[in-house]
Design a binder for these strands. Structure first.
Lengths: 336, 336
DNA sequence: GCATATCATGATACGCGTACCATAAATGTG
DNA sequence: CACATTTATGGTACGCGTATCATGATATGC
């Protein structure tokens, strides 16, 4: 592979002159520039960013770490990041942790070694260790979606507490009282947050929530299936289910279908996160939709501010509004 | 950020000794190693791969270029790549082109500059230019899924021609004769390939295919919706539809639902590619499923063989079998 | 006890591109 | 025409980690 020196020799100039042509910095006579460009063309020279990065002390690369790459919600967030990153000339590296703290740790190491300019993290872990690892190296980091405990750090997330509150309120206003929450993992910020919104709505109307009403699980279809089955075994049959995310909703719907329980006639269901339209023949779930792409954009913007600007500015928490989409699955007004 | 020299100074050794500790190469006395490790710990030293890559002439990084990051098929392929890459200590960079040749070209440039060790490409373009650009730089490249014209290059793809053939055969054996193919783009390899399989099945039973029977479009839900509408306007109403992929199928199903046409009673439908189970309450599409993860694994393996081995070995074409999954959407036997 | 093999460490140079300083030619100014 | 300014180009060193060669310290063999 040719180097800048090969080009220089062929063009009969010094390497630094080739560098000036590449970066369009400083003065180069038109005649010289053309000779250099011809040499670059002839040799098929591609500048080696390793050398550049070493000097410039920047790699023009950002990393996005997400927990599930097959989930379109996260890939849509990533698209938002890309939009902004590309605009600023940055390459985005996407890493997938599968919710494994171990894999996350491995990726962080790999990224730090590569002197990535900044990291966008959807943390697989609820504790501060990974964040502190990065902060210690003075690499800018912005959290997305999920907060972690006891750290001062930038974060962009959406207001799913409010979303959960509104969804629950919607069900309450339709007359539902026996609503079971099919929650996510107990130790993930967003999961707890959604449960809080659920509880807040009940508190406001002065109804006590029983223990049975909240079932903790995971953000997967399988968990949704199991949680729904459990909900249907409770002494008091619920008239509505609240799914902590779209996958949970799909699992729950499957469980209901297997028992020939009609939605929304016999049981209503609502969820946080929409199902991507590309997979739905007939969208009917009432959902609180998070602005995925916007989340990615804002997070990337915030990160780039840090990367290109100051690390000293105080940390920000940007909370984006969720969008209520009322469809059929919540059902009509019921009398309890 | 501390460098290897800072560590060396603190440990009272030469930089090269620190290097030896990091890479566990050559001899280092236990006592010295411990002193160095303590210094690394104290300073929070993270080796700078830019320097290493410059010397080693390798970045331990692979890139995957896909055309749609929000499509779980591609992200599953990527997961397969990751599995293998991580096993071998490589980081994977994921790039998303949105089917834009322009974006693809940009990404290739960015990757070449970063001296990526190898590239896995799902080409947004049907011509050989991007492949030749990479080959010229002697960077190993393996195509996935889609072939391109007139280049000798490694490729791993699945046998969707055979899949399409089998699906069509399935419909034919159930008695369908008026089958309309909702095809993908005219200039994408896999799209043409599937259409060929469709035609082959008809040829084998000696039935001529009319022009109306193949509608070209795109691999999207929207296109599927429009193509299905068009199919229903034809003089001879089809008794079955063949969707070129899962998104097309969903769009077609929506069009059918809007016209109150029941599937499979009134019209049967089959598709290449399954709908990810996480989104389906009730899987009922008869499909030919591609081994996405396996495709990624094999492609990554082939690429790594090139990266770590020889570039001289002749190019390979690995064709993976597709899996027929017969469900309800193909319907029962009909008499025409 | 001396030659040889092994262990342990370091000095120097290099991979690639560029910052910094130096030099020289071209141009402008009075 | 003398001097200042702008334009144009190059030499050297550096960013960080390591290959190569060299050197010295131990250990092994006979």
């Amino acid at each position: 592979m040719p180097t800048i020196r090969d080009v220089a020799k062929l063009a009969g100039v010094a390497p630094i002159t080739v560098s000036r042509v590449i970066n369009d910095s400083s003065y180069v006579k038109l005649d010289t520039r053309e000779r250099v460009e011809a040499a670059i063309e002839e040799l098929g020279y591609v500048p080696n960013m390793l050398g550049q990065s070493l000097r410039f002390k920047q790699t023009m690369t950002l990393a996005v770490i997400i927990t599930d790459i097959t989930n379109p919600f996260w890939t849509t967030v990533t698209r938002g990041v890309e939009d902004v990153a590309q605009e600023h000339g940055y390459l985005t590296i996407l890493c997938n942790t599968d919710e494994s703290e171990n894999k996350q740790e491995q990726y962080l190491q790999m990224l730090l070694r590569r002197r990535i300019d900044g990291i966008l993290l959807v943390s697989a872990s609820n504790d501060a260790k990974p964040v502190e690892l990065v902060k210690k190296q003075k690499i800018p980091l912005v959290l997305m979606d999920r907060n972690v405990e006891n750290v001062d750090v930038d974060i962009v997330r959406s207001d799913t507490e409010e979303g959960a509150y509104k969804l629950t309120n919607h069900l309450l206003s339709l007359g539902h009282r026996k609503i079971t929450m099919l929650a996510g993992p107990r130790d993930i910020f967003t999961s707890v947050d959604r449960t809080k919104g659920f509880c807040r709505a009940f508190e406001e109307v002065g109804i006590e929530i029983s223990n049975e009403q909240i079932i903790w699980g995971e953000f997967t279809k399988e968990a949704g299936y199991l949680m729904a089955q459990q909900a249907l075994q409770n002494d008091i049959l619920p008239t509505a289910l609240f799914a902590a995310n779209n996958f949970v909703a799909v699992g729950a719907l499957q469980a209901l279908q297997e028992k020939d329980i009609r939605v929304p006639e016999q049981i209503a269901i609502v969820a946080v996160d929409d199902i991507p339209p590309a997979y739905t023949i007939n969208p009917f779930l009432t959902v609180a939709k998070q602005p995925a792409r916007e989340m990615g954009k804002q997070a990337a913007q915030l990160l780039l501010n840090r990367v290109e600007g100051t690390m000293d500015a105080p940390c920000q928490e940007i909370v984006l509004p969720v969008q209520m989409i009322i469809r059929a699955s919540g059902g009509e007004k019921v009398l309890s």
